[in-house]
Amino acid sequence: MWKWLHPYAKAERAYQLCNTLMPYFAVVTVVCLVVGWVWGLAYAPADYQQKDSYRIIFIHVPSAILSMGAYSSMAIAAVIALVWQIRNAELAVIAIAPVGAAMTAIALITGAAWGKPMWGAWWVWDARLTSELILLFLYLGVLSLYHAFEDKKSAGRAACILAVVGVINLPIIHFSVEWWNTLHQGATITKFDTSAIDSSMLWPLLINIAAFAGFVGVVTLIRLKNEILQCERHRPWVRELVGRGE
């Protein structure tokens, strides 16, 4: 069953797979990003309560979803790297981490910019915002741990261990923060229920989610290719590839 997956443990095959996948993700990203932003900014109807400020949702929700999705994929890659000792999975962890951190940062910034007109404050200690902030810390921890090591091989493994420890802790952190929040001040935002949203707003939102997912895919692939090249730079296939001017 795993036979067809095995070749991709080899760096060269993984590199080629990245190249094959890249155009699909790129097309999805460009098309959905253009359509989603234009639709979301200009054509979607204004919300009857929040007026035009709600348009931030079209980037806030996708980035928040992707920030968590990126962390879970990073953790899955980390588990694979630790259990089966696959170097490419380690590289994938390092490739995803900055992208996930960027998504988290976008979610936080847009959340603040949305919170100011709606709640009257740039930052409230709401459960979701707080756990998003902690998520950013976890990403930054993985990244700075990786960059602190001289030897990139042990750096990758250490980052994997930290990612796995983080993913075990993440539900506990999320649950405790949510519980802390209800205890201290009560829920501040009304839950954004997808079923309650009109389809004229839902469609651009979904398209934007696809666009962000595509973007995460594209940048992760680019970074993964870089990491593979970096780690295999003395191998003949890399030299041949670079010599061809690719």
Binding site: W37, L41, A46, K51, D52, S53, R55, I56, I59, H60, S63, P98, V99, A102, A105, I106, I109, T110, A113, W114, K116, P117, F215, V218, V219, I222
Partner: peptide, 24 residues
């Protein structure tokens, strides 16, 4: 103007675009 919310909307879309482009 975005119905008076222009600053916030463009701030978030602008910073989002900046981060995405910088990363890419």
């Amino acid at each position: 103007a975005m119905g008076g919310y222009g600053f916030y909307v463009w701030l978030s879309f602008g910073s989002c675009a900046a981060i995405l482009l910088a990363l890419f």
